[in-house]
Nucleic acid binder design. Structure first.
Length: 398
DNA sequence: TCTCCACTGGAATCCAAGGCGG
DNA sequence: CCGCCTTGGATTCCAGTGGAGA
């Protein structure tokens, strides 16, 4: 790559089209690997929509990185086009229930995604109106500009209550919408999710359910090869893709992880000024991937949760024992210091306990209740799941 | 086995931000 | 513009818990 000197610097020596290595990159149909059956089943479930009929509601299960979101997005996009050829207007709303976990937020997001203010003359404000108002606007939007609305609820198990599912799945029969119809695609990591639903929602929501199995090493290898165009010709070490695929297959067959590791390996080669992406970079790339995933999760947390994580990390470091469990009270006093250092007012104890149990729910920390003996009552101790140094680093970058 | 009491966690309440109808 | 309503985060209040020490 040294022959093309330019005032604007050399072209990227490693990547030809890095976009291909973004996880959100939606490949063309022939490039979704090893999911032909699943795509066909999904298509069958919702195919009525392309003639304006009501699609079946679907629940999809599978571990992270098994292509659930990808296939849902792909198939709904395909359906929207096929329907448009029949003169049927299909709208797709994608909701990440991790981010929009309350009923109000979910309805609002759906309404915003399906709305076109110019066409419907309906506004969907960010705050200030009641939940039922959001519902009413959503129904109006559906009737006004669509024949079929498809709602993808990703990480559906993170929803706080299932009222929204009830409303969505029964919208048509309850006469909320008359000119249009509605289908729901729910995506869950937890295979037992269905058991937590009440009977009515369960029967209407999971008319069909599918399980996406983890990718095996062969499929992962193929997936990685299909994205190898992201790199310049011939710079990948021969054993690189098989090694990354084997690593990811061992860890739950997560394709997203595999792609991320491949990208990091490329970046490491770039930093070393190396013109080959060597197989030796894989371990470091793996570390980076784990750190990045943690940072991403921590970055999504509220400000004070980050301070709490920092406080807990500091105490664990002070204790010189990565597995030491810190009582909530001690975490709180350290947290007050962290807040002071950052120039913010600390939250009260009660609120902090809520945030801590939320962090425990996300498996960023572990909590255990302990007794303390006479006159001491019960209390909770908190433990970091990850290395304190890593957590502190993640909090800083977030 | 009983008791003690700090900590837990549910519930009520407050507050800020923001839309809506009059 | 004003009063009223909604949501969601934070605070306040308080009854209940639970396990080591007696």
């Amino acid at each position: 790559m040294s022959e093309s000197e330019s005032f604007f610097g050399d072209p990227d020596p490693i990547f030809a089209d890095k976009e291909l290595l973004r996880v959100s990159h939606l490949p063309e149909g022939d490039r979704i690997i090893g999911r032909d059956q699943e795509l066909q089943k999904l298509a069958n479930a919702i195919k009525d929509a392309q003639r304006g009929g009501t699609p079946n509601n679907v629940l999809i299960y599978g571990k992270t990185g098994t292509g659930k979101s990808l296939c849902s997005k792909y198939i709904t996009r395909d359906l929207t086009q096929a329907a448009a050829d029949n003169g049927i207007k299909v709208g797709v709303a994608y909701v990440d229930c991790f981010q929009e976990s309350t009923e109000t937020q979910t309805v609002r997001t759906i309404a915003q995604a399906l709305n076109d203010p110019v066409q419907t003359d309906i506004t969907v404000p960010h705050t200030g109106v009641s939940t039922s108002d959001y519902y009413r606007r959503l129904w109006d939007i559906l009737d006004a500009r669509l024949d079929v609305g498809l709602v993808i609820l990703d990480e559906i198990d993170k929803l706080e209550d299932d009222n929204v599912l009830m409303q969505l799945s029964r919208a048509a029969e309850a006469g909320k919408v008359t000119e249009s119809t509605l289908g729901v695609i729910g995506i869950s990591n937890k295979i037992r999710y269905k058991d937590s639903l009440n009977e009515r929602v369960k029967s209407s929501l999971s008319e069909r359910d599918f399980v996406f199995p983890p990718y095996d090493a062969n499929q992962l290898r193929e997936i990685l090869r299909s994205r190898a165009d992201a790199f310049r010709e011939g710079i990948l070490d021969e054993d690189l893709i098989p090694k990354v695929a084997a690593l990811a297959a061992k860890e739950h067959g997560d394709a997203r992880k595999a792609i991320d590791i491949l990208r990091y390996a490329g970046e490491i080669a770039d930093e070393h000024g190396d013109d080959t992406v060597r197989v030796e970079y894989v371990d470091e790339a793996h570390d980076r991937e784990e750190q990045a995933r943690l940072s991403e999760l921590i970055a999504k947390q509220p400000e004070h949760s980050k301070y709490l994580l920092q406080a807990l990390s500091l105490q664990v470091q002070e204790a010189h024992d990565d597995n030491s469990a810190i009582p909530t009270k001690d975490v709180y006093s350290m947290y007050e210091l962290v807040c002071e250092r950052n120039g913010v007012d600390p939250l009260k104890m009660r609120r902090v306990r809520d945030l801590l149990s939320e962090l425990a729910f996300l498996s960023l920390i572990e909590q255990e209740r302990k007794g303390r003996g006479k006159g001491k009552g019960a209390h909770t101790v908190n433990q970091l799941v990850d290395e304190p140094e890593v957590v502190v680093e993640a909090c800083k970058s977030a």
